[in-house]
């Protein structure tokens, strides 16, 4: 039996003829899925995967999809979000599709890479009124859709093994404190 994750992978690839090569590759590679969550529909899960990879794409290091961010987002939306937060998130996905239908005559997942990027930029402009993070970087419950999905993408990515160890630096046993290091010698910030 084809599991849901396989279905999303398949759907993404089948739909995504207009997607950038790197995004197609990321979607095709998929992620190790725990299979615990089936909160999103296949269409919604595909959208979330594409958006997360648009926010943190594959560069010289793996991107959001390889780091398992879509699963993380689904788990947080399903289990951690309040009803109000969940509604903002799901409405945001729907509005993004609606925007794409108006602008490009097709839903977000069927748009090409340029259109998807433009659509996400449009979504960001819809969030510009929001006051932003508090001192510690946490977003409020009332944060708009773009702010929410960006926050979850960032959190999921930089707390993932890939994000913490490949994109950033991680060392649980530093053994010493050096308070005067040249950043250029490290090149990447600590993950904590």
């Amino acid at each position: 039996m084809v599991n849901r994750r396989e279905l999303i992978k398949w759907a993404s690839v089948a739909l995504g003829t207009g997607l950038s090569a790197s995004l197609q590759q990321a979607l095709a590679a998929g992620v190790d899925s725990t299979g615990k969550h089936d909160f999103f529909t296949v269409e919604q899960a595909t959208m979330v995967s594409v958006i997360s990879e648009l926010i943190i794409p594959t560069t010289d290091t793996p991107g959001a999809i390889a780091a398992g961010v879509p699963d993380f987002i689904e788990a947080m939306v399903a289990d951690w979000y309040t009803a109000g937060e969940r509604e903002i998130f799901m409405m945001g996905l729907a509005q993004l599709d609606k925007h794409c239908l108006t602008q490009y005559k097709t839903v977000f997942s069927h748009c090409d890479a340029v259109q998807q990027s433009s659509a996400l930029s449009w979504s960001e402009t819809q969030s510009k009124h929001y006051r932003g993070a508090d001192l510690l970087g946490s977003m409020g419950s009332d944060a708009p859709f773009f702010t929410k999905i960006k926050e979850l993408t960032v959190l999921g990515y930089y707390t993932s093994k890939i994000g913490a160890t490949q994109e950033l630096r991680y060392n649980p046993m530093p053994m010493a404190y050096n308070g005067d290091v040249n950043f250029s010698d490290l090149g990447r910030q600590w993950s904590y």
Binding site: P174, Y177, N178, G179, D180, V181, N182, L186, Q189
Partner: peptide, 9 residues
Amino acid sequence: DDKYYSGNR
């Protein structure tokens, strides 16, 4: 801006 640290004091 060119300075950083290592270890979590």
